[in-house]
Each structure stands twice: as structure tokens, then as C-alpha cells.
Write a protein that binds this DNA or RNA. Structure first.
Lengths: 221, 221
DNA sequence: TGGAGGATACCGAACGGTCTGTTTTCTGCA
DNA sequence: TGCAGAAAACAGACCGTTCGGTATCCTCCA
């Protein structure tokens, strides 16, 4: 399946780079894909090593256990996602309000990806013991970083209550992610974006010309 | 564990009544509890029959397979939840806007329950193959019933775009459920309720006196 | 007395994880 | 430059456990 003559970067150098071709990188991206698509508990070690094209020994030498692999996946995927998300709303400049208005268009393009499977952190919490803090703490840590960035922008924008606005936007983001995972309709991001406009305050609302544009796409939600 | 001399209603009569003491009822409520708390894939048959106090034979005589049991749980739990939710916002009367304003207080009391584990439908989707429609369709069917009720109230209330408002409220609901599952802080419902007020339109907004009341509770979200 | 339910032994498959051994690739010295 | 050896990765048999599910027999009570 995988050609054995593949060039190999020095393992330490290209650690978690996304297109990492080392055994570690291949295992991480295979595990990320399968955990997100099928769920963590439903994904066996054999499926991961098959997709990664590595041997079982390699996985256990590099990660020690499935549990460690799960944590490594969440850490690397969380980092990559946050870099993408913050980059997507910051790139292009403009004032804080302009940046906040890029949140839901960015999410929409994510929802439209073939390999969009929802938020790995929410999903991880959903399929584990909810009386234990393990995964909930990891998820909250991730969400706090995102929230902090949004709150900074809300403050910069001069919102009356930046903390409140940021939390409300976060609720819309989570709601949109979940709705998109269930319905597979990227259009929910438009709906959430429209709701966000209402939150910015009636005075400074910059809604699209046709406010019902988002609703037109809600064929099957 | 379970005393064998327990009174037993005729099995057919009290089918899925919530406090059903028949073998079927005990299996359903044990499976519901464990599936929601620990996840479907992480819950073994043995754990279910232990909590239900039945024999394995009984489970397979009544439900045929774990898959069938999962579907029965989702169906009965969905029905019960919708009855509770619609009852909670309808009971007490008042106009449509008053009813809609009861959504998030109702959710808050749900979030505060000891056995609150998030939305079983969202969680079921989260831990299964997201390229298959099986659970996604079941989840959408559930959410459509809820959405339809909200949309009816939005229309009755005279909202400019009832369909849009209903979808936006649904996004806030899902977002609040997920945030409450992760953070275990029922206060997220207040935040979502405050956001909902903004959606009702600037003119008819009936926010609480102290708008920042909700933010005060956001200690750890 | 018959049917619902309880108890338990058992099955094959899949799980996470370990082991032994072989092949490939990098590295350093003659 | 070439070759030996270290290091890394591959291959896959194997282990004990747990899984979903079946079969057998027993108990209780209407």
C-alpha cells in the first residue's frame, strides 16, 4: 500500500507539522481521521495502523497506549484547529467587528469540508463517562482559548459587555458545529451568523441586505 | 440486588411509562442511564442487565439485539424529553412570547439535574460513523419536532421571520446543551436566554433588569 | 401447568497490548 | 567510497480479556 522508498524527514525535525510523513505523523493523522469520523471507542488499533501503514509495535513504541494516542490526537488537532480558526478571522485585517464577522463564514467553509465530523472535543466528551472530568477539562481548556480571543475582539470593538457577547458567540459557535455535524448542511453557519448580528446590538447591526438569505438554504434542518 | 418479590404490573399495560417496573421498563431505564452517562459503545450488555436486575436472556428475548435496544432507548427517551420540554414551556399559559421565554429557564433546571448528560441524540451521532445517516436521521427527526413547535410559537408571536427566529433559537438550545454537558454549569442557560432576548428584536426586547446577571455566574466556562 | 423471567456456562470475534524476529535506513569509520 | 553496525520500522503470531449473543436448565407464580 505505502511505498517503502518514501523519503523520510528526520523524525524530530518535522514533529507534528500536519503533512508529517514520519511514522508518528502518519499515525497521528490516521488516528485523528478515524477517531473523528467513527468515534474513539469504535476505532480499533488495527484500523489505525492499517490507515497509517505502520506496524503495531511502532504505535506502542511512539505512544505507549491507545489512551496516550487519544490525548496526543486531541492536543495536536486542537492546536491546529485554533491556529486555523484564529488565522481565518484575523487574516485580512480590518477592525475588531470585521474580524468577528468572519467567524461564521470561516465555520461555513469548515462545515463544507468532506472530512468535517464535528468538534473532536465535544465528541470525545459525548462518548465518555460524564461524571469524570478527564475529557471535559481538555475540552474546556480548548474552548477557553477560543473564547479568550473572541472576548479580546469584543472588547476592542467597544461592546457594552464584551464578556457576555463573547460567551453568546461561543454558544452560537457550538450550536452551529453540532447542527452541522447532525445535518451536514453548512448553511447553518449563515443562520448563526445572522443571529450574531443581532447580538452586536441593534444600533450597530450590519445585517446582509436580504436578511432571509440564510433561511432559504434551510432545506432540511 | 433487586428484590425478587417486587410487584410487577402487567408488562403490556405499563409500556414505557418512565417508572415502569416490568423487566422491559427496568432494562429501558438502565440502558438509558448508562448509554447517556458513559456512551453507547462504552456500555456493555452486562452493565445494563446488572443495573436493571434482569438476566441476559430477558434482554435478548425483549429486544433481540443491542442495536434494537439502542433504538428503543432513543425513541422512548426522545418522546419523554419532548413531552417534558413542550410541557415546561406551555404550562402556565400566557402569550407565545411568554412561552418562548420559558425555554431557557426550563433548560437550566434540566442542566442542573444530577443525571444530566447532554442530548442523547447529539451524543449518539458524535460516537458513530458520521458518513452514515442512521443516527443523524434519528437526531434530525427529533430536532424537527422541537423546531416545529418553536416555529409555531414564533409565528403566533408575530415575529418578522418566524422560521429564521426558530432556527436561531434552536442553535442557541443546542449550543447551551453542549456547553452545559462540557462545563456542568447550568448558568450557560441564562447566557443563552439573554442572547434569545436579543433575537426577539430590539423593539420588543424584555431583558432582565440586570443584564449582566447571567455573566456573574460564568465562573468557569 | 405453562409461560415469564433468573442464573450461568459457553461461543466466536474483536479488543488492547506484548513478543519475537526480519527488513530497511541512517551513520560513522576505515 | 564502502561496509559494518546501530537504530528504526515492519510483520504478524500470540496473550488475556471483554464483547455481543446463544443455549440450557431452574424458579416462581397466576
Amino acid at each position: 500500500m505505502r511505498k517503502s522508498s518514501a523519503k523520510r524527514k528526520s523524525a524530530a525535525a518535522a514533529s507534528r507539522a500536519g503533512d508529517d510523513e514520519s511514522a508518528r505523523g502518519r499515525l497521528l493523522s490516521a488516528a485523528t481521521h478515524l477517531f473523528c469520523k467513527d468515534g474513539i471507542n469504535a476505532t480499533g488499533i488495527d484500523a489505525i495502523i492499517n490507515e497509517a501503514g505502520t506496524a503495531k509495535t511502532t504505535l506502542y513504541k511512539l505512544f505507549g497506549s491507545k489512551t496516550n494516542l487519544v490525548h496526543a490526537v486531541l492536543e495536536s488537532e486542537g492546536k491546529q484547529w485554533r491556529e486555523w480558526f484564529i488565522g481565518a478571522i484575523e487574516a485580512g485585517g480590518g477592525d475588531a467587528e470585521k474580524k468577528l464577522s468572519r467567524i461564521f463564514p470561516a465555520l461555513k467553509s469548515w462545515f463544507g469540508e468532506e472530512r468535517f465530523y464535528g468538534c473532536p472535543f465535544i465528541n470525545a466528551v459525548a462518548e465518555h463517562d460524564k461524571d469524570q472530568k478527564q475529557f471535559r477539562n481538555i475540552a474546556m481548556k480548548h474552548k477557553k482559548v477560543v473564547l479568550a480571543h473572541i472576548e479580546r475582539l469584543a472588547t476592542e470593538m467597544g461592546a457594552a459587555e464584551p464578556e457576555v457577547l463573547a460567551h453568546q458567540l461561543a454558544l452560537l459557535i457550538d450550536g452551529a458545529i453540532v447542527a452541522a455535524m447532525v445535518s451536514r448542511n453548512p448553511g447553518v453557519a449563515d443562520m448563526a451568523g445572522l443571529a450574531a448580528c443581532s447580538l452586536f446590538g441593534p444600533s450597530k447591526a450590519k445585517k446582509p441586505k436580504r436578511a432571509s438569505g440564510a433561511a432559504a438554504q434551510l432545506v432540511a434542518v
